[in-house]
């Protein structure tokens, strides 16, 4: 009985050293440490290609986007994150056409599920790779994605 008691104590110390040996190994092999020193590594930090941070609307150099205002993304969104306000615009040839007035994106409601991107028929929106979104006021998370004065790109219907 007493022998078992001391045996257990010995085994406990032994297993403690087995664990400590492993810790010691990593303590002396600094190359195997895999932690990243965020935010000090901001300059070199690269997010994955498909990382989903926020919905963005790419514009070209002439301040043109590809959004036709079809509202497919608005229907596809499970949370009511996207609201598209359209307007009637008179084109150069006198025809009236539907164009977007503002593409409102509520970032605070967004779960980044990618369903709007998949639903978009004209590749107007995509996922941005930024991830530092914290702000002091919730209102700042309501974003208008089309830039002021932007137009629909030629040839996108």
């Amino acid at each position: 009985m007493l022998k078992d008691y001391f045996k257990t104590i010995f085994q406990a110390i032994q297993s403690l050293f087995t664990g400590m040996k492993l810790t010691g190994y990593y303590f002396t092999h600094l190359k195997e440490i895999q932690t990243e020193e965020y935010p000090d590594n901001r300059a070199t930090l690269k997010m994955a290609e498909r990382f989903r941070g926020e919905v963005i609307m790419p514009h070209n150099e002439d301040n043109e986007h590809r959004c036709t205002g079809c509202q497919a993304c608005e229907i596809a969104c499970p949370n009511g994150t996207i609201k598209i306000i359209t307007k009637q615009e008179v084109l150069a040839d006198g025809k009236k056409k539907k164009r977007i007035d503002s593409f409102i994106y509520h970032h605070d409601l967004c779960t980044l599920c990618n369903l709007c991107i998949v639903a978009c028929p004209s590749d107007a929106i995509k996922m941005g790779q930024t991830f530092e979104h914290s702000v002091y006021d919730k209102k700042l998370l309501k974003k208008i994605l089309n830039k002021p004065g932007s137009k629909l790109m030629e040839g996108v219907e």
Partner: peptide, 23 residues
């Protein structure tokens, strides 16, 4: 993350298959 675009809440499965092809 590389394939699905998210680490925890991937939403990668869609009815009929998967959302994106493998990286």
């Amino acid at each position: 993350e590389e394939t699905c675009g998210a680490r925890l809440t991937q939403n990668y499965m869609v009815p009929g298959g998967v959302m994106m092809d493998l990286h």
